[in-house]
Write a protein that binds this DNA or RNA. Structure first.
Length: 223
DNA sequence: CCAGACGTTGTT
DNA sequence: GTCTGG
DNA sequence: CCAGACGTTGTT
DNA sequence: GTCTGG
């Protein structure tokens, strides 16, 4: 699955890599992004699908939810079943987003040893994400998101059975964002696990366990 | 019809 | 053990 | 995902 | 809002 990730590339690289036209905030380098925190997300708007960088809180709150308690349970959506789940159905057809990242963490369930996985070369990539806008009783809006998951590839599998859906190239990213053109039934081809032979893995410090730790030292290899 | 859930992961 | 918060 | 809390009443 | 279970 995906319950923690990194995004330390700068705003300029981010804007260029994903062809983003506008921004609602300046993301800072992050080495330990945890559920409930704001993440940098790319959403598309209008007939020309103009791309906007905006902060979304990680943990989906469907628009019909009574309160936000459901958020921490909806940090991931299984790509195999996302189309049939009431919590995700609406967002899958209308509100898809890219969640830029440069790595993600998985924990060995027996030893608790955390591993950082990244695309070889440290490149930026995007998770397939969904988002929603929820309104509090007083009318104030809350924009939230979730990360799709798929089966683990051969690199991740020894650590964990699941991994995030990583879109494999800019064409796939465009397809994911074009909600008007591509419907839920067109999307499963995008859900294949990212190729293991294009990724690297390193063991990292158990300090990553606490979301309060968020510094570049977390990416220094250990063991 | 209404009431109640709506999720994933991992562990047993 | 289970839930909440980050 | 992990870390950390896990409760009520009444009083300040 | 929408689906499932009773």
């Amino acid at each position: 699955m995906c319950g923690r990730f990194t995004m330390h590339h700068g705003p300029d690289e981010l804007m260029a890599r994903f062809d983003i036209q506008g921004s609602l905030f300046e993301p800072t380098a992050r080495y330990n992004i945890a559920p409930t925190q704001p993440v940098a997300a790319v959403t598309a708007h209008g007939p020309r699908a103009e791309r906007l960088l905006e902060p979304l809180h990680w943990g989906l709150v469907p628009f019909w939810a009574k309160d936000t308690a459901i958020a921490s349970k909806l940090i991931n959506a299984r790509s195999e079943t996302v189309q049939e789940k009431p919590s995700f159905k609406h967002a899958l057809s209308r509100r898809r987003c890219l969640i830029p990242a440069d790595g993600f963490y998985e924990w060995d369930r027996k030893t608790k040893q955390p591993t950082h996985f990244r695309v070889r070369g440290g490149e930026l990539f995007a998770f397939a994400g969904l988002y929603e806008e929820w309104h509090a009783p007083d009318g104030s809006p809350l924009r939230t998101c979730t990360v799709l998951t798929t089966e683990a590839n051969a690199l991740v599998a020894p650590i964990h059975e699941r991994m995030p859906v990583i879109l494999q190239n800019p064409d796939d990213e465009a397809m994911w964002l074009e909600v008007g053109r591509y419907k839920p039934l067109d999307l499963p081809p995008l859900f294949s696990p990212f190729p293991a032979d294009q990724m690297d893995a390193i063991f990292v410090s158990k300090r990553v366990g606490s979301p309060a730790n968020d510094d570049a030292e977390l990416l220094v290899p250990v063991g």
